[in-house]
Amino acid sequence: MMLVHPLEYSAATHPGLKRENNEDCFLSAPDVDLWVVADGMGGHDAGEVASAIVRETFEKLAEAGRAFSLQDAIQKSHEEILSSADKGIGAIGMGSTVVALLSQKKNYQIAWVGDSRAYLWSPDDNGGKLTRLTTDHSYVQMLYTSGAITAEEVETHPDKNIITQCLGMQELSQVKVDITQGQWQKDQWILLCSDGLTDELSDESIAQILEHSPNSLTAVDQLLHEALTNGGRDNITLQIIESPLVADSLSSRFWNWIPSITNNRTWDAIIFFSAITILLGLLINTLR
């Protein structure tokens, strides 16, 4: 029997070794099962403004309590960036990519615009399998899809970082939001990341690190470390979200008994047993 637990996750962001500021932004909202990575662009701090607008837009829509749509949130983010630039907030021409995950019990949905990516990691008897869930909205992806270049040429193409659309693009009244969905399986992880990670690490390198990571926190730390070691030429942001499905074992029954307080199982257990210890101490003192 499989049980559905609150999702565990780990996240990190770093300006990299060549940039003075960090134009990446991320949102972790486990209370509404939502995770977002946004990669801003525009220079002169404008990229920071654009990616922050994406995060704030998602936050406001999620807090509104209505049925949540990733597509609507992304379109709204695009509109907010455009209107903010018109008001002198940030700068004309600023923009942001986005990739977002919404988990719904045993199912998940991913939506994106630009070249920030989502990967699915599925462990198996042979180590595991890494599947890219998103397709870059980029010039070289168009070349590859048309057959003009090979997969090997994609990684070394001089125009690799030219994207075909982003949030805030002045020429677009609406962006084309791509969406994929799937069903969680036991022990799977979903990795959301900006291109600062994938420019430094191949899919094969990412898979190797995930295979040898005992938990998502270690995986995030190792991926970030390797990206920095390989050059860290851009801002780097990543989140790993763990499958909510776990086997109905003795340990899973124990964790199911612990109330969810912080959405971190270890801290939930510490807080719960600390509270029990204090209550027992008060009870003993009362009975003396």
Rank of each mutant, 00 (worst) to 15 (best):
N230I: 05
E171W: 00
F58K: 07
N161K: 13
T145A: 14
S116K: 05
Q165A: 02
G231E: 11
L210N: 06
V99A: 02
P214Q: 14
A118K: 02
P214N: 12
E204K: 14
A91I: 00
Q208H: 12
Y119K: 02
D31A: 13
D124L: 10
H44V: 08
T277A: 15
R19L: 10
L191C: 08
L143K: 09
A85H: 07
G93V: 02
N235R: 08
A52M: 04
G93E: 10
A73I: 10
D72A: 14
I236F: 01
N256K: 15
G90L: 09
D125F: 13
M41P: 08
A73Q: 07
A29W: 13
V140Y: 06
G231Q: 12
P123M: 07
T229K: 14
L120F: 08
I89H: 01
S216K: 11
G231H: 11
V36S: 04
S84R: 11
S138N: 08
P158Q: 10
I276N: 01
T145I: 09
G114E: 04
Y108S: 08
Q188E: 15
D178A: 11
R19G: 09
H225V: 00
I162C: 01
V177S: 01
D195R: 08
A100G: 04
I92V: 15
R132P: 03
V175W: 09
F272P: 00
L197R: 03
A12D: 11
L133Q: 06
T180R: 11
A275F: 13
T13I: 01
L192D: 03
S83G: 00
G95I: 06
V246I: 14
P244S: 10
S96K: 06
A219I: 07
D31S: 12
E204I: 14
Q75G: 08
A275K: 08
K18Q: 15
W257H: 15
H137M: 11
G93R: 06
G42H: 11
L34C: 05
N107V: 00
S103I: 02
E80Y: 04
H157Q: 06
F254N: 01
L250R: 10
Q174K: 15
S122Q: 15
Y108E: 09
K160A: 04
Y144N: 10
L70K: 05
H14Q: 09
L167P: 02
P15Q: 11
W184N: 04
E59N: 05
L279R: 02
A100N: 05
A275N: 08
M2T: 13
A73C: 01
L101R: 05
V49F: 02
R117Q: 07
W35Q: 00
E200V: 04
L192M: 09
E80G: 00
I110R: 04
Y9D: 01
A62N: 05
D136M: 03
L283T: 09
D45V: 11
A46W: 02
I163P: 08
V54C: 07
K129N: 12
R233H: 13
I53F: 03
T97H: 06
G114P: 09
G88W: 07
M2A: 07
I74Y: 01
E226C: 08
L223E: 02
M94T: 05
D221F: 00
R66C: 02
E20A: 14
Q165N: 08
D33C: 12
E48T: 09
